[in-house]
Amino acid sequence: MNYMFPASYAWGNFSVLAVGIWAIVQRDSLDAITMFLFGLLLTVVTDIIHISLFYPSNKDLTDLKRFSVGMVIFSFLLKPVSCYLVYQMCRERGGDCTFNIDVSSAGRDRSTYEPIDQQDAPSQWPDSSRTAQQPY
């Protein structure tokens, strides 16, 4: 049979579906729902690439291929709604579900830097300015 989309399209969507089933089964797992959300977002991007690269020309469109492309486009249009619903589920489970790359603090902020090669050696003799209290 002459397939229109490559196997990577099916593998990507079925693997995200498997993670989605894992997220539904384990209701207390924040990792599962976060992976499902980012997997859905990734498949949105890969669906755009697959549709744009592998859409057949008009002379090659049979009824079966036209139906297949219609289902792929319908699935693509439903994914933003799915992403929103999964995001709401993530927030209900107590997750933040934000993808944060903090570029501004990636510089040379050395306020919390503790050098380990230059340790202050403890003094050998007690500090003479402090006198020990005499026990009574």
Rank of each mutant, 00 (worst) to 15 (best):
N2H: 10
Y136K: 15
F14E: 12
Y113E: 09
R110W: 08
R91P: 02
Q88F: 04
L40S: 00
W22P: 03
P122M: 10
T62S: 09
A106N: 13
W125C: 15
T112M: 13
G107F: 07
G107L: 09
Y87E: 01
A121H: 14
A132E: 12
D31S: 12
R27C: 06
C97Q: 01
Y87F: 01
A18K: 15
D47L: 02
Y84A: 15
S57M: 10
T43Q: 12
S68P: 00
F74H: 07
E92S: 09
G20S: 03
G39D: 01
G20R: 03
I116E: 13
F14I: 11
V103L: 14
A106M: 12
L64F: 13
A132H: 13
V19L: 07
Y55D: 01
Y84R: 10
D31Y: 09
R110G: 13
R108D: 14
F14Y: 10
F5Q: 06
N100S: 08
W11H: 08
D47P: 00
V16T: 10
G70F: 07
R91A: 06
I101D: 08
P115H: 06
I116N: 10
P126V: 11
S52R: 08
R110F: 10
A7K: 11
S52L: 02
R93L: 01
P115W: 03
R108V: 15
T46S: 10
D102C: 04
L53C: 01
L53K: 07
A18N: 12
V19G: 00
N100Y: 09
D63F: 12
Y113L: 14
